[in-house]
Write a protein that binds this DNA or RNA. Structure first.
Length: 394
DNA sequence: TCTGGGGTCCTAGGACCC
DNA sequence: TCTGGGGTCCTAGGACCC
């Protein structure tokens, strides 16, 4: 029987690190990535006033990533740029360049696949790997029973560095849940390996919120019940947890706190939904700005249609997401008689789904989402069946 | 002038069918 | 006429993650 070894590989401050490759003179500077601003011409020196500074930013947006020197000033991803500007006014602000990050993402994943072919994509900058059957992973040395898998992890880090010039942090344990925790224990450029036997020592002292799946709401409910750490969660009676969180989540909380997780590394998932959304430069009123909203709805529907076409998919359900100025979110959706990837058809059904929404409050965001996705070649093209009709809104 | 954009999964009620 | 379950689909909302 093989010892199961799962790795979680997490690129260090990924977007920021990719930007530092391009602008090496900014190494060691507080830099944040976010917003919609254009870059200065040329390559100014690190202390040049030509670089956009956080204090000069005006508008909506959040930090996508910050370099470690910027994090030391108290800013972090998800923080509003205006708030960050008060904490770190002199930090350099670079716009996001997703095409470039996707390029480096492909590079590091291709390099890793050469060593460990069982890979689960978890987004642009992190992956899970099943190392169990990687050659050498099961070998032991006299002074280190896990020398084999440790060496495999070192090779992964080296391969990522050679392919991209970037560092990553890796956690290696018997499952995904623990490896996700482990990869975060020694950042940046870390390698953390442990087994189930070390869970009490290494995991139980951590706050419960560090478990992937315990977010702000669940952490707060646990706190109200007197549970702060994973160890305290592990000590709670499963029946008592089920009483407070339901049998399903209660059991999951109990298992997670004991480091138990049998989920496999999944190399492929069929996409379930696709969406496009946009936050407006200024809030828009459903009636007063009806024309502008109509143009935006058309654009979003066309973008989703193009995304579907690119992946050769069609959708049965289309919906709209609205965020009001008070941040309340409403969603409406409709299932169509035929699946489609046709932009005007998606737009028509999206608009129709909005029949009963509140027209008296200003909006700050609108999005279009499709689900019920199927392969396009399994379904006849229904665009010939479109019917013209009047629209209730926009 | 707080708070982006793209996803997954879960819950829950009502419709509808057997 | 009244009383049942179970299963699936549709819709809306919410928690959570990167």
């Amino acid at each position: 029987m093989l010892q199961r070894w799962i790795a979680h590989l997490d690129m260090d401050a990924f977007y920021a690190s990719v930007e530092l490759l391009r602008h090496p003179q900014l190494q060691g500077q507080p830099v944040v990535i976010g917003g919609r601003r254009a870059l200065p011409d040329g390559e100014p020196a690190a202390d040049s006033p030509a670089w956009p500074r956080l204090r000069d930013y005006a508008g909506r947006g959040v930090i996508t990533t910050a370099t470690y020197p910027a994090r030391a000033l108290g800013v972090h991803s998800g923080m509003g740029l205006m708030k960050a500007a008060m904490l770190a006014p002199e930090a350099i602000l670079l716009p996001v360049d997703f095409d470039r990050y996707r390029h480096f993402s492909r590079l590091f994943k291709a390099a890793v696949l050469q060593i460990a072919p069982v890979m689960e994509d978890r987004g642009i900058d992190e992956i899970y790997l099943d190392l169990t059957e990687v050659p050498g992973a099961q070998e032991a040395a006299p002074q280190d029973p896990h020398a084999g898998v440790r060496a495999v992890a070192q090779r992964l880090k080296q391969a990522v560095r050679e392919a991209t010039g970037l560092s990553c942090s890796i956690g290696v344990t018997p499952n995904k849940l623990l490896s996700k925790l482990a990869s975060d224990m020694d950042k940046p450029d870390g390698l953390t390996l442990f087994t189930l036997a070390e869970v009490p020592l290494r995991v139980w002292p951590l706050p419960a919120s560090r478990i992937n799946g315990i977010g702000p709401k669940a952490a707060e409910r646990l706190r109200e019940l007197g549970i702060e750490t994973i160890g305290q969660l592990a000590a709670a009676e499963p029946g008592w947890l089920a009483g407070h969180f339901g049998s399903r989540q209660g059991q999951w909380l109990h298992d997670a706190a004991h480091g138990r997780d049998e989920r496999p590394v999944v190399t492929w998932r069929d996409p379930k939904s696709m969406s496009r959304e946009t936050t407006f430069e200024r809030n828009l009123h459903p009636r007063h700005d009806r024309e502008a909203l109509g143009v935006l709805l058309t654009r979003l529907a066309d973008q989703v249609a193009a995304d579907l076409a690119r992946k050769q998919l069609v959708a049965r359900t289309v919906g709209v997401k609205l965020r009001y100025e008070d941040f309340r979110i409403v969603t409406r959706s409709l299932t169509m008689p035929q699946p489609t990837a046709d932009g005007p058809t998606l737009r028509r059904w999206a608009a129709r789904s909005l029949r009963d929404i509140d027209l008296d409050r200003r909006l700050r965001l609108m999005g279009v989402r499709v689900e019920g996705l199927q392969s396009a070649d399994a379904v006849p093209d229904s665009s010939a069946l479109q019917v013209q009709e009047s629209l209730p809104l926009f």
